[in-house]
Amino acid sequence: MTAFDRYLHSVIERGALEAHEDRSAAIEAQHLLLAIAAGREPTTRQVLASAGLDRQAIRAALDLEFERSLNAAGVSLADFDLPRPSPAPKPPTQLGASARLALDRMATVFRKKDLRPAHLLLGILQAEAGTVPRALALAGVDQAGLVATVRRALPGQNG
């Protein structure tokens, strides 16, 4: 197992906990992003911090995205007084479509032996539609600028 494999495994494991907390049946791209932000890997943390993003800021942006997306259909989350259901007994193990797409973007462009943690972040941030780009926009993050910052942080890149 390479260092990157171990890193990917740890992000997916942490992402599963984020998905569990989110009551999601699958690990989605936003859960991997939360996991990266909560992790200790310095390059990815620095890149995210440069855009004002830590785990808490991303969580807040995701919550806002959920609320605003419901609003677009005329539904207000504040109107629901839900009893909180009991959680699933275990965190999910299945990757959702958005997480698989992020991994595919990473794996099809870069050779496996070249992969570094920033490549995973790049795959997540390159989504053109869906929850992650919408949440980033609501947080006031320039997604294209952030992608460029990640690219500069990749090994062998000189700007």
Binding site: F66, S69, A72, A73, R134
Partner: peptide, 8 residues
């Protein structure tokens, strides 16, 4: 509209 579907 698509995000609303996912959120709903």
């Amino acid at each position: 509209g698509l995000a609303a579907v996912a959120a709903l």
